[in-house]
Amino acid sequence: MNIFRLAGDLSHLAAIIILLLKIWKTRSCAGISGKSQILFALVFTTRYLDLLTSFISLYNTFMKVVYIGCAYATVYLIYMKFKATYDGNHDTFRVEFLVVPVGGLAFLVNHDFSPLEILWTFSIYLESVAILPQLFLISKTGEAETITTHYLFCLGVYRALYLFNWIWRFYFEGFFDMIAIVAGVVQTILYCDFFYLYVTKVLKGKKLSLPA
């Protein structure tokens, strides 16, 4: 555990809780992609199956349980409790175009051809693109609520911090996981355009809106 890893995990946790609180407090999930949230729930489920097979640390187990619990709570709020506020008409990204190729890739490129390992690899690849339905929704409606942009910013920061974590671990532990690193770089790149808008607009007190 190093400072980048810990800060990354906490940023990830902050993102998840910001989103849950936003939906809960406003009683609305307008502007939130339910599809991205389903993908994240799928990511956590397939990645954290090792909760059942191996114990790493109390911290590790606690965070995994919280991430999974929050992911399903978010999906529940969007598709059940506050379904009436869900932006289904704009949330039209075809997730099969992500899940199917990612599933195929997980079968082809993995560390070990075993069920749990393939599911872990699937979750890593899927996480790197799971935010696309959310970014697609924002590009369709042309705007995002400020609290939604804070959520996205925290998610992006989490990924960027993990890159620093891997640089640290490579130098000090000789740790090197090609699959995680390549997927992590892809995922971070997807946030770059958003980071630019966040810094130039949201941090200057403006609402995030895209030119028509």
């Binding site: 995990d9 990830h12 990645r47 191996s54 790493i56 590790n60 070990d112 390992e117 993990y162």
Partner: peptide, 10 residues
């Protein structure tokens, strides 16, 4: 059934 590769990150 144990994982051959321990994944210690979240």
């Amino acid at each position: 059934y144990a994982l051959k590769i321990p994944h210690d990150e979240l």
